[in-house]
């Protein structure tokens, strides 16, 4: 039984911030009771106000579109790039691999302004394709890394056998390798889409038209600057994390398995 007790304690610790945010979200601004106390009567109006003044519905649609597009491109480009990098150990490819790895370490902030100037020149600020390409560029390295590691576990004998059968290298890639990539693709989709969905930094600077605002921006504008109501802000925060949370609860197996497949080769 101590195992069960420990489990409850662990869960409680992880759920405390969520619980508190929920009680705050459900109380009107006039309710000065402890955050631990459940509200006497749920103030759903906080949620309504969050949706209304934050334009949350539009924000959800924008975020979903950008996330889907970025994720698709990341999967496509990373799955392509990883194959030669996994198979050929030439000096060139080793250099490319370490270049890709080093990109993962570039702090986004050191690039913010030059990147912004670049996007302006490309007329890409406040466009869906602009933010999508930025997300793709910065999420690709991890995806390439994961795909490469995965492809390394696919026996080369498969490739060699196909060559003997007269396949071209692209034929091998398309017919033999690609179909085997399903598990790692799930990982990449999950990691990328969560990263893009939760992004705050890039969207803040590259999506400045309010009609294009994404969820994290809407929420932070509740918390930022003067005159904000913490209860409405809490309601917004709850709504913002709801989709990913639900998706995770129902598709948990994939979320966890994906992470794991990538970790252990």
């Amino acid at each position: 039984m101590p195992r069960g007790v420990a489990a409850i304690v662990i869960c409680a610790i992880q759920l405390v911030p969520l619980y508190i945010t929920l009680t705050v979200a459900l109380k009107p601004q006039t309710d000065l009771s402890s955050y631990w106390a459940l509200p006497v009567r749920a103030a759903w109006s906080n949620f309504a106000r969050a949706v209304e003044s934050g334009g949350l519905i539009r924000a959800f649609a924008n975020t979903a579109a950008i996330t889907a597009a970025s994720t698709a491109l990341v999967v496509l480009l990373a799955a392509m790039a990883a194959y030669p990098l996994a198979r050929s150990g030439s000096r060139l490819n080793k250099t490319v691999s370490s270049f890709v790895l080093s990109i993962m370490m570039v702090p986004a902030l050191s690039l913010l302004v030059p990147l912004y100037v670049l996007l302006v020149r490309m007329r890409a600020v406040s466009t869906y394709w602009g933010i999508t390409l930025v997300h793709v560029a910065f999420n690709l390295p991890l995806a390439i890394f994961l795909f490469t590691n995965f492809i390394k576990t696919i026996p080369r004998e498969l490739d060699e056998a196909a060559v003997i059968d007269g396949s071209s290298i692209y034929g091998i890639y398309y017919r033999i390798i690609l179909p085997l990539l399903k598990p790692v693709t799930v990982t990449v989709i999950i990691l990328t889409s969560v990263a893009v969905w939760n992004d705050f930094q890039y969207s803040l600077y590259f999506l400045q038209r309010p009609s294009m605002r994404v969820v994290t921006l809407s929420i932070s504008s509740f918390f930022a600057t003067s005159g904000s109501d913490p209860h409405v802000a809490a309601a917004g925060a709850i709504l913002a994390i709801l989709p990913v949370t639900l998706l995770y609860v129902f598709l948990q197996r994939y979320f966890v398995k994906g992470m794991v497949d990538s970790a252990l080769k």
């Binding site: 889907a68 597009a69 994720t71 698709a72 496509l76 690609l178 179909p179």
Partner: peptide, 12 residues
Amino acid sequence: MRRSIAGLVIAL
């Protein structure tokens, strides 16, 4: 899997 990538690209 190939088909789903194609679908996503079209959506984009």
